[in-house]
């Protein structure tokens, strides 16, 4: 039947499933349903016919950019920010509470992660993937491996440390190195954090700002330690034959969680819920974990994930994730501005 109609311009009684509606997803690049259909298997299989019409994307490269675009109401149905930004979406009324009973896979979401998406007693975000931030070290170039965030200041690495150009990350890791609570630092402690970061400068090679740099800097040997690097940078370097170590610092690795929020004025709730449910299906989450070495929020997907990914990420110990990892927490607008100001002052100082 579709064949017979293929020549017609309009085909009104197509027997295949075609969605009436359309989703606009505000997304990082690298998650496109058209390019990575396996990340949303049930959904992309069902709408395989006209997937590129059903799902449209608007991309962002930075969480702040995503929030600005949502504030300007670009008409997105779903948005995929990371958890330290979630509170701002809720406070500004940009997302709506979720009816989790419409998600058949919801019960498989790990509890601690689900709890992070709750605000004012309601579930606003579907946690999807998580990962670590730690020190990535070229073991063959250093005499001694660092084993704490404080070791970044060790003069033996002078000129060979690269840190991420991220106010949030550097604030937290410095607070940890100084023994402060990164989410309840006093004004005096903040001043010490600023001073400590300025003192790191002699050890610095550069600030890295994108993933390609996190890979290239240690690969070229210019950087010995890349701080704030994600585990998939490690995975790439390792598989390319470099002698690298992904450190488990004394103070704990940092950890991030990202997930989907449903826009307050989404036009097609049925389709949006269908997409969300497909994204957290076992096979979808496993595909994501295998592709990028990310932790899946749905723990039932574990049997489908490659053993070495499970092992490296400690996916089977996800229950203790919040204890052994310093997970980012939601920041208010004032906190975010204060941290950026601190970091910019550090960068601008001699």
């Amino acid at each position: 039947m579709p064949l017979a109609l293929a020549g017609c311009g309009v085909d009104e009684d197509d027997p295949d499933v075609e969605a009436d509606g359309q989703l606009l997803i505000l997304e990082w690049s690298g998650y496109e349903a058209t390019e990575y259909p396996q990340f949303y298997a049930p959904f992309t299989e069902k709408y395989a016919n006209n997937l590129d019409e059903v799902v449209e994307y608007s991309f962002f490269a930075d969480d702040a950019e995503a929030l600005a675009k949502m504030q300007s109401d670009i008409g997105a149905d779903l948005v995929h920010p990371c958890n330290s930004w979630w509170q701002l979406y809720v406070d500004n009324g940009l997302v709506q509470p979720l009816d989790t009973s419409r998600l058949s896979n919801w019960d498989k979401i790990q509890n601690d992660l689900a709890a992070m998406g709750q605000f004012n007693g309601q579930q606003y975000f579907v946690p999807w993937e998580w990962g670590y931030e730690s020190m990535l070290v070229r073991a063959d170039l250093v005499e001694e491996l660092p084993d704490a965030w404080l070791d970044l200041w060790d003069p033996q690495y002078a000129g060979h440390v690269a840190i991420w150009d991220s106010a949030e990350t550097n604030y937290v890791l410095t607070a940890l190195a100084l023994g402060f609570d990164p989410w309840n630092a006093t004004a005096e402690q903040e001043a010490q954090i600023e001073q400590k970061l300025i003192e790191l400068k002699p050890n610095l090679l550069t600030y890295w700002s994108d993933y390609t740099e996190a890979y290239d800097l240690p690969a070229s040997g210019d950087a010995w330690i890349v701080a704030g690097a994600w585990q998939d940078a490690y995975a790439y370097l390792e598989s390319d034959g470099y002698e690298v170590v992904y450190v488990q610092p004394e103070e704990g690795r940092l950890g991030w969680v990202c997930g989907f929020g449903l826009s307050a004025n989404s036009g097609d709730l049925d389709l949006a819920y269908e997409f969300l449910d497909a994204a957290i299906a076992d096979e979808s989450m496993a595909a994501l974990a295998n592709e990028y070495w990310y932790g899946p929020a749905n723990t039932a997907s574990l049997p489908l994930i490659d053993a070495y990914v499970v092992d490296f990420m400690d996916l089977d110990e996800v229950d203790t994730l919040t204890e052994r990892t310093v997970l980012y927490r939601p920041l208010t607008e004032a906190q975010r501005i204060a941290r950026t100001t601190l970091w910019d002052t550090v960068k601008a100082s001699p």
Partner: peptide, 23 residues
């Protein structure tokens, strides 16, 4: 362009976003 682009990316927008993928 970063601020003005909708669902269709321009070349530089796409290129910078691809820096996320070294390969």
């Amino acid at each position: 362009s970063v601020f003005l682009v909708g669902t269709d990316a321009t070349l530089p927008i796409y290129m910078y976003s691809q820096l996320r993928f070294p390969r």
